[in-house]
């Protein structure tokens, strides 16, 4: 399933690019991400807790994350919930584009494959959840900017 989102940020693109380069900081903004550990190189492991309708998933797994100074972040990885029997594999790309002197936007494209029980849930529900997660991420990211 392909997801595309654009997040507006009232900060210059350089600052956003700088933020995207700090992977633990970015991860902290993803709703439901917990216990992120750097494994060395570009490898990270961690857990993602997602509540989807009546069901809570706890997906643990690894990801390879790279970010460039020009404001592009690429992540590729996957997670599994062993108890429920569900999994996610995703390739995500986020790119900063300047909009004006103090405005920019982050364009996020994600190609996500679901397996097990997750694959049995309806697309509209999953899309809606993804939208909500991106909204929360955007809010967290904006908050992270105002803090720094």
């Amino acid at each position: 399933m392909i997801f595309e989102h654009t997040i507006a940020v009232d900060a210059p693109s350089e600052a956003v690019a700088h933020f995207l380069a700090d992977i633990p900081k970015v991860a902290a903004c993803v709703p439901g991400v917990e216990d992120v550990t750097a494994l060395g190189g570009d490898e990270y492991e961690g857990r993602l807790r997602v509540r989807l309708g009546p069901v809570s998933f706890s997906l643990t797994g690894q990801a390879e994350v790279q970010s460039d100074a020009d404001g592009t972040l690429r992540a590729r990885g996957g997670g599994r919930d062993r108890r429920i029997g569900a999994g996610v594999d995703a390739t995500i790309e986020a790119r900063v584009e300047p909009l004006g002197p103090g405005d920019s936007e982050v364009r996020v494209t994600a190609d996500v494959q679901f397996s097990g029980r997750l694959a049995e849930l309806g697309q509209p529900l999953i899309r809606r959840k993804a939208d909500a997660m991106v909204r929360d991420f955007a809010r967290n990211m904006r908050a992270a900017f105002s803090d720094s």
């Binding site: 599994r80 062993r82 429920i84 029997g85 494959q113 397996s115 097990g116």
Partner: peptide
């Protein structure tokens, strides 16, 4: 069924 859920298949799309 639980064992089936534990089987990990790696695909190349």
């Amino acid at each position: 069924r639980h064992a089936a859920d534990l089987i990990e298949v790696t695909y190349e799309e």
